[in-house]
Amino acid sequence: MSVLIVIPARYASTRYPGKPLVELTGATGEKKTLIQRSYDAACAVKGVDRVVVATDDDRIKDAAEAFGAEVVMTSPDCANGTERCAEVIETLGGGYDIVVNLQGDAPLTPAWFVEDLVSGLRNDPIAEVATPVLRCDGRALNDLLDDRRAGRVGGTTAVFGADHKALYFSKEVIPFCAQTFEDAAPTPVFHHVGVYAYRPAALKSYPTWEAGPLEGLEGLEQLRFLERERSVLCVEVEARGRQFWELNNPQDVSRIESMMNQMGIA
């Protein structure tokens, strides 16, 4: 099955304008933009046929082409990364069995997260979309809770049924848990990793659906699938000692750089 990775990137982020071009300093002191680090993460995934950056901004296009990325220009009217991926497939003329949306704000995404995601979708004939979830340890859960207490929108959490089909995603920390946990202790909260794998038919249908109230309230694109009662598979992935965080706010830059330093990421 042929696999395409699309990295949607837009300049006009509401919470952090210009985010894709923010520089992150690695463990060796090398500076790379967020979009380049996300592209590097995509290129490390095994079994992928093509990687493209999808943007509507010439500044991002020029920066991406400067480090050797293939760029597909998309409409500024795309409401989110999923719509941008759908436009990319239309522009490229299809030809892929699975399309992966590796969002351009997740440079710490390990290759095996995406590899396990693609494998999960391949092995589930019912699921139309798949997305990774990572069980929070006590430290990650406390980071999520700290963001909410400070009024920041941090990571997204996911809840799913016994069949691993998604029940809901939220920017609140769900499920509610009154218990406290040691830093390394596993918790019942799952951090949603901002990556999606789509079957082409589901991706083609997505832009034709109006956004529902839940998507509007949460600002989470994947809720459009749930509001249309489409099957979204949550694939549990293992951290293997790696820390994971997305760059959502300016405050996340130092947090991600600290994680990169601790993990020895150049």
Rank of each mutant, 00 (worst) to 15 (best):
V3G: 04
A9T: 04
Y11C: 02
A12D: 15
A12Q: 14
T14Q: 13
Y16M: 07
K19Q: 15
L34F: 06
I35W: 02
R37H: 09
Y39M: 06
A42K: 03
A44N: 08
G47S: 13
R50Y: 08
R50A: 08
V52R: 01
V53E: 01
A54K: 02
A54N: 03
T55P: 01
A63G: 02
G68A: 05
A69W: 04
A69E: 06
V71L: 08
V71P: 00
P76F: 08
P76E: 05
D77C: 07
G81N: 06
R84I: 14
E87F: 04
T91A: 13
V100F: 04
Q103L: 15
D105L: 00
D105T: 03
A106S: 13
P110E: 08
L117F: 09
V118L: 06
D124I: 12
P125D: 14
P125R: 10
A130Q: 09
L134Y: 08
L141T: 04
N142V: 01
R148S: 09
T157E: 07
A158Y: 03
G161A: 13
D163Y: 10
S170I: 10
S170W: 05
S170Y: 04
K171M: 09
I174K: 04
E182I: 05
P186R: 12
H191N: 14
A201M: 09
A202R: 03
A202F: 06
P213H: 09
L214R: 15
L214C: 07
E215N: 14
E215K: 10
E215F: 11
F225I: 12
E229P: 00
E229S: 13
V232C: 04
V235N: 08
R240F: 15
Q243A: 14
F244M: 14
N249M: 12
N249Q: 13
Q251I: 12
D252L: 12
V253G: 04
E257T: 07
M263I: 09
I265D: 07
